[in-house]
Design a protein around this nucleic acid. Sequence first.
RNA 1: GCGGGUGUAGCUCAGUGGUAGAGCACCAGUUUGUGGCACUGGGGGUCGUGGGUUCAAUCCCCAUCACUCGCCCCA
Length: 412
Amino acid sequence: MQPARGTHDLLPETARRFRHIEETALDVFGRYGFGEIRTPIFEFTEIFSRNVGDSTDIVTKEMYNFEDRGGESLTLRPEGTAPVVRAYYSNGMKKDLPLKVCYVSTPMFRYERPQKGRMRQHHQVGAEIFGIADPMAEVELLSMAFRFLTAIGVGQDLYVELNSLGDQTDRMRYREALLDYLRPHADKLSEDSKIRLERNPLRVLDSKAPEDIAIVSEAPQMHNYLSEESTKHFDAVKTGLDALGIKWKHNPNLVRGLDYYSHTVFEVHSDALGAQSQVLSGGRYNGLIGQMGGDDVPAIGFGSGMERLEALMPALPDLPRPIAIVAMGENARNAAIKVSEDLRAEGHTVAMPLEETSFKSQFKKADKANANWTIIIGEDEVEKGECGVKNMETGDQTTVPFGDVVAFVSKK
RNA sequence: GCGGGUGUAGCUCAGUGGUAGAGCACCAGUUUGUGGCACUGGGGGUCGUGGGUUCAAUCCCCAUCACUCGCCCCA
C-alpha cells in the first residue's frame, strides 16, 4: 500500500515540526502587519494559465487539471500568487490597499518527477504586499523573510541572490540585445537552450550546461539595459539591505521561471539541500494585478517551501515529559482514570493505560513514554485511600493520599 | 519527459538456482504488584508486482510500479 506518487504522510513527529514553522511564520509575519489569507485549493484553470505564463513549465507540463461535472476546467493550485490576486478582485479589496497578506502550510500541486526536496504535493508559506511601489517594500519583505528563517533556526546557512529584470520596456530592449548576441551562437548552445532561445531567451542565462555558461559569460547583461528609474529602484533595494546587514549577491543571470516578475527578483538557497537548493524565492510583479483585472497595483511577494525548511531545521525541544499511571483491578483502574483527569486538568501530560496488562508491562510502557513520575494504583492502594508515586529517575517511591497526588507531582 | 542506482521482517541490511537470515524494535517469561541492564523464548516476510527461462526462481531474463540521485524546472 503506497501513497500516490510524490505525496507523503506527515507523522506526528514531523507534523510537529511543520506546525512550528507555521506558528513561527504567523508570529513573525504578524509583527509586520500581515494578515492570513486562505484561498481554495483549486481555481479555474485560466487563473494560472493566463497569469503564470503560457510558456512556463508550470503551465505547460506540471498542472493538475481536471474537469468537474459541470464541464469547468479546474486546476489544483501550483503556486500561491495568482490565487491571492484573484481573491483581491473577488473580494473587492481595493479599499484595503496597501494590503499585506500571508499564507502558511498551503498545499501546492505540480506534476513533476519527484526527487529530493521536490514533491508533487508540497507546502509553502508565503507573503504578498499589494500597492507599494517603493523599494522599501523589497527591503522590509526580505528582512521579514530572514527574521522568519532565523526564528526557525535555518538563517545562518543561507545565501541570497538578487537581480533586477527591469520593467517591461527594459526587458523587451534587453531581450532583443540578448537575441542579437545569442543567435550567431545558436548551433553551439545546448539542446535545451536552443528551445529556450525561441520560447524565452532570458532563460538561457541561468542554464547549467557548460557550453551555455561559456557563451552566456560574454553575453550582454541586463543591468546595462535598465532605465534610469529601474536602476535607481534596484540600487535603493541594495542599499536598504546593506543598511540592515542582510548579505546578498547580485546574480545578473537570475531570471526565475514565472513570467509575471518585474524589477527585483530574489532566491534564497542552502547548500545543504542537494540539487533543489532554493528555500525561499520571489520578487516584484508590478504588472500582474493590472493584467488580471485592470487595477494598476504594484506588488511583491515570496514563497518558501516548507518541506525544504523542515529538512534544514534543527531538532525541536522535547515535549514535556508525561506522568504515567500504572493500575490493576477494576476499582483501581476507575480510581486511576479519575487521577489522570485531575492531572490533565492541571495541565499535565498523562499516560493512562487504557488496557489492563501486567504491572511489568505497564511500567515498561511508562519508561518508554519517558515518564518522570509513575503513579501506582492497585487494590491495596484503593483500600488504603492512597497511591504509590515513583520517581522514574531515581527509582524512589513513596505513598501519597489520593487527594494529595496532584499537588505532590505538580510542585516538583 | 530524460539518464543512473535501489526494491528481502516495523527499521537497517545479509543471503543462496532447490520455496529465507541477523541486529535493532515489538510481545512474553526469568521477577505470582514495579521500568531502564542481562538472559531465554515468541510473533511477524505473497523476498515490490506481472510475465518468461528452468524439474525448481528471492536469486537469471523481460516488463511494470515505487523509492532514490541527477537533468529539465521549481519551493
